[in-house]
Design a protein around this nucleic acid. Sequence first.
RNA 1: GCGGACGUGGCGAAAUCGGUAGACGCAGCAGACUUAAAAUCUGCCUUCCAUCUGGAAAUGCGGGUUCAAGUCCCGCCGUCCGCACCA
Length: 840
Amino acid sequence: MSSRFNPLKADAYWQKIWDERGVFVAPSADELATSDKPKAYVLEMFPYPSGRIHMGHVRNYTMGDVLARYKRMTGHAVLHPMGWDAFGMPAENAAMEKKVHPGGWTRDNIAAMRAQLKRLGLSIDWTRELATCEPDYYGHEQALFLDLLEAGLVYRKESSVNWDPVDMTVLANEQVIDGRGWRSGALIEKKKLSQWFLKITDFAEELLDGLDTLTDWPDKVKLMQENWIGKSQGLRATFKLVGSDHGIDVFTTRPDTMFGASFVAIAADHPVAADLARSTPALQTFIEDCRKGGTTAAEIDTAEKMGFDTGLRVEHPLDPSWHLPVYVANFVLMEYGTGAVFGCPAHDQRDLDFARKYDLPVARVVADGHATDIRFDGNEAYTGPGKIVNSGLLNDMSVDEAKAAVIAKAEQDKWGTGTTVWRLRDWGVSRQRYWGTPIPIIHCAACGVQPVPRDQLPVILPEDVSFDIPGNPLDRHPTWSKVACPKCGAAARRETDTLDTFVDSSWYFIRFASQPKDKPFDRAEAEAWLPVGQYIGGVEHAILHLLYARFWTRALNRIGKLGVTEPFKGLFTQGMVTHETYKSADGAWLSPEDVKQGAGGIVTLAGDPVTLGRIEKMSKSKKNVVDPDPMFDQYGADAVRWFMLSDSPPERDLEWSESGIEGTWRFVNRIWRLFDSIDTAGGNNPALDKVLHRAIAGIATDIEALAFNKSVAKLHELVNAIEKAAPSASRSTAIRTLACLIAPMLPHLAEEGWVHIGGAGLIADQPWPVANPALLIDSDVTIAVQVNGKLRDTLTLPKGTDKAAIEAAAMALDKIIRALDGANPKKIIVVPDRLVNIVA
RNA sequence: GCGGACGUGGCGAAAUCGGUAGACGCAGCAGACUUAAAAUCUGCCUUCCAUCUGGAAAUGCGGGUUCAAGUCCCGCCGUCCGCACCA
């Protein structure tokens, strides 16, 4: 045997064996039905086929793979699939830039990335691979869309979009930079388009409540979703316009402060404002100024509160003789609540800023400690708790009591109702794009909106399109959009919008579990696997993808298609892979290949000085990307996998380093040499047995907790111990067991070593070793002996020694006698098997 | 502004229940083997004082609770993340 592990040979060899023997093919529905194995659905977020696998993917998929392989070894029926989130804008951008077809570009990328992933040696069931851009996926998605439409969970509404008049396309908010299109640089227009919406707000309450059941999700993600859903409870109240039958509806979470009201403010887009602006040019100008206001953080921070007194007056609902002015204000959002608020300056910072600027009354109605005076000085609003003051019938109530009292009175006197307002909006899914799932709808002049008949699904995206001119190629395709109305047969137009790609990723985990040809999924088969036991991916999907997938699953549940409400039982968000950055003297980013270690520090290949930048997420723009492929060539998949699992806790960032990968490569070879050192020596080594069985138990615990860095450390300790041990039967057993323990993490090395030491079958099919509980318990324990809390010595005693004996032994220690220096102990604390603390 | 997480050697980190702080790895230093190098192996590696026995300080800073605090409580400082004129 060679003293060096040969990954180039071993990786390809074992990957082929696993593939040929179908080792990782998940059990079929029939097999599952007759098996009593516990099920484990392990899923990593599927990749967008951008072109190449990056280290972030490698880390993500390695973690999932370790868990999936471990679950197999512990007797689970495992589903561990892979697919491609294959629709999206980068493909269209590539089409425009490189004159290639989005489909061709995408499918080439998938082929390249699949090959890269296979080099990682993942235990994937490739028979279930899917790509969302293929009709056998998106056709079923169209069917599901029609199901939701029939159930009333889809509707059509006019909505304004960011329109790029040069590229003739709709842009996402993130693609609008300083009011201009990111690609064309054209000034973006707001354009009203009829768009399709999914009624996610119907599920706001249950999406919020459901978070409580997700005990295996990070609190951080749950909190982000909670904030995003944004439940606010309060009062919706009508302020009647003086001299009119109409009124202005406001929403407030502080009905308790109504007696502190000094004005009503409405959004610039409010219908009342629009009405009035028609006859008031100055207001029209003001409204246009408001719209120009930026929406970036900095702009909002510095934006001054601006208002326009409409001259309108409203009656205070609790005292109709009290009239309040109505302002149009730039800080009121039409999209939230009712687009109108009442201002209570003493107890709301924005209202106070506004009132001071326009010299409006500021009345204290909540006592701030002893401050109860109606006069309110200063420029800091008081938002804390306190007794209600200066408020007539509400006086002396607490804030909560007053809220309830006002809501009750409003409901009794019929000028308002207690209500809940959500931040969450309905999900607009229309995209004026080519490379997405066609929305299965036909527009008929006579019959209106008609769903595409089921027997005509899938609506296939035409491949014969061009990107020579801007805009959606589906719109100008000569024939595709021209169809007959399914109802009356007259000439009609096919919907040319496509679905948001987040729809594609909202149900792929269901299709992985069950993929019949004739329908999106088989209910029983899907339910056998779902929910996903462990889902792993980046935290950047904490809100949108994870919320949409939760919604979609609940929607399917509501319409009776799936008996699952939460799609992902366990969620883990892994950290990023980072790398040093380098900059040349002129400030340009340099890639790792452009620099080398010089005598006095890092220099360019030409020897020019290089400044070390921050450690950042690997990205093309910062040129600090390390491509996985050359690493597989040089060190093999296992060394790369080991690196991904070592040192950094998986939820934190991992810094790639050349010395780090060298280190993991050395470790791979240390294990390799151990396999060669197995011999026929007899005899036991109880100390090594103990180390081994602790490792078996500890590594299992760590893998189940996804604490891979800790299991790596434990494997290091075990290897260190085996290396130091003299030949014995215990040592040989330890080496054989080691092969199993490394199998989830270093699968190729484990298979190769397993053959070398004469193991039968594949290591992938071996059961996880069983730890002997008797060996996990020490017969002797080391007990710390402290004097006044400071460690002075240690004692080794049989486990379970009684307190008195421990105390006696501790008091007899030389170092303790010296440390006490004749003083009498005041108190002695003995924690059996742990420590003694002598208080002198 | 609001919400959250985090802060431990030169670096990544560990410490699972309040009980021996720094396991394990990286880097570094010294040595062995070698003509030499690589590879491999052995030892050292928080800081300071002492010198072959030891002692003191130390988990961002300042307090507190406790026999005992990296861990719990209060107040600061810093870094990162999310949301953001949300009524």
